[in-house]
């Protein structure tokens, strides 16, 4: 117990002393995961919404695949990207392995199914009456589709939060394709692995606290943005 308390104490000290190495890995983590999230969202939200709304052939199959890949183990995503980027792989000539770009690619692979699948689910959970109300008020098909997506925005935001939480906390993929190179591809999670391996438990705890703070801030920011919608989110009363 003492070891844990001491670790937390020293970890907090490291944060308050603005340890430059911790700041750097934090920035790399955010840069990689936010970029991956942005790209995955640009692909995942429209594709997810289209899958939910349009009767395209192979839709069911694609949706089921998406749901399956939502649980893709990070290290497997890393392996797939690794095999594509290795010097002997199809994209070897671009020399992308062990760069932040490679980490972003792997995280897109992880984030896309989550965003796409949860967006599709959120949109599909909207009822026929949303569409009916929109078109009876004179909306074109496109405008009505947009109304449905707007109504699903809480679900889509939940999809983005889920994805970002997973990406920031993921270690398997970034370790494999990023390589944990100091000052370049070392991120919060790979730092924790390394510090633990080196027996630097307090540093590991300190970085872990930073990671938790980030996840917490993400939730808080989204809460603020969506305060109005959350107002009605009174929850279920169990009496």
């Amino acid at each position: 117990m003492e070891i844990i308390i001491q670790g937390i104490k020293e970890g907090l000290q490291l944060i308050f002393s603005m340890d430059p190495k911790i700041i750097h890995v934090t920035l790399v983590s955010l840069q990689v995961s936010l970029t991956a999230l942005l790209i995955a969202a640009c692909l995942g939200i429209p594709i997810g919404a289209a899958l939910a709304l349009k009767d395209i052939p192979g839709r069911r199959l694609f949706l089921n695949l998406t749901y399956t890949f939502m649980g893709l183990p990070p290290v497997l995503a890393g392996l797939i990207v690794y095999l594509f980027l290795t010097t002997r792989g199809p994209f070897g000539q671009f020399q992308l392995l062990f760069t932040p770009t490679a980490m972003i690619c792997a995280q897109i692979l992880l984030g896309f199914p989550i965003i796409c699948g949860l967006t599709a689910r959120a949109v599909m959970s909207q009822r026929q009456e949303v569409y009916d109300t929109a078109v009876t008020l004179g909306a074109s098909r496109r405008q009505a589709a947009w109304a449905i997506i707007r109504e699903s925005r809480m679900g889509i935001i939940a999809a983005l939060t889920t994805a970002l939480g997973r990406l920031v906390a993921e270690v398997g993929a970034v370790m494999l394709v990023g390589g944990n190179i100091e000052g370049s591809t070392r991120v919060l999670t790979t730092s924790i692995v390394l510090e633990t391996r080196m027996g630097e438990d307090s540093r590991a705890i300190g970085i872990g606290i930073v990671l938790l703070l980030i996840s917490f801030s993400i939730i808080m920011i989204i809460n603020l943005l969506e305060k109005r919608s959350f107002k009605n989110d009174a929850g279920i009363q169990i009496t």
Partner: peptide
């Protein structure tokens, strides 16, 4: 459809309200 629907409107039993 769009042209004709724009001349009609509907209120249902439990009207749906946009957020």
């Amino acid at each position: 459809l769009l042209k004709l629907r724009r001349q009609m409107a509907m209120v249902t039993q439990t009207a749906f309200m946009f957020e």
